[in-house]
Amino acid sequence: MHRVVLAPSGLTFSVAPDQDLLAAAAGAGIAVPAACRNGVCEICEARLLVGRALNTRNQQTMTVNERLMMCRSLALDDLTLEINAVMAAGTNQPRTYQAKVVDVRSISHDVYRVELQLPRRRELSFHAGQYLSVNLPDAEPCYFSIASSPDEASIELHIQASPDWVSAQKVIEALTSGNDVTVELPHGKACLASAPQKPLLLVAAGTGFAQMKSLVDYLRTTSYQHPVKLFWGVRRHEDMYLRSLAEEWHKDWPPFTFLPVVGDDEDNDWAGHHDQLVRAVLASGMDWQHVEVHASGSPTMVYTLMDALVEAGLPEAAFLSDVLEYAPRG
Rank of each mutant, 00 (worst) to 15 (best):
M1I: 06
H2I: 02
A7N: 14
T12S: 11
F13T: 09
F13Y: 15
P17L: 08
D18W: 10
D20H: 11
A24H: 02
I30W: 06
A35S: 15
G39V: 07
A46E: 00
A46Y: 00
G51D: 04
R52C: 05
L54A: 08
N55T: 10
N65T: 15
M69E: 11
R72G: 03
V86E: 03
A89E: 09
T91C: 10
T91A: 11
R95V: 09
Y97D: 01
Y97W: 15
S106D: 11
R113S: 11
V114D: 00
P119E: 00
E123W: 10
S125Q: 13
F126V: 01
Q130I: 01
V134Y: 02
N135S: 05
S149H: 10
L157Q: 02
P163D: 13
P163F: 10
V166F: 12
A168K: 01
E173I: 07
A174S: 08
T176L: 07
V183R: 03
E184W: 02
Q197T: 14
L200S: 04
L200P: 07
A204F: 10
A204D: 05
A205F: 07
F209C: 10
Y224N: 03
Y224A: 10
Q225M: 12
K229I: 14
W232Q: 08
W232K: 09
L242F: 13
W253R: 06
F256Y: 11
F256R: 02
F258M: 06
V262E: 10
H273Y: 11
Q276L: 15
L277S: 02
L277A: 05
R279A: 15
A283R: 09
W288R: 08
S298M: 04
M301C: 03
E311H: 13
F319V: 09
F319R: 05
L320P: 05
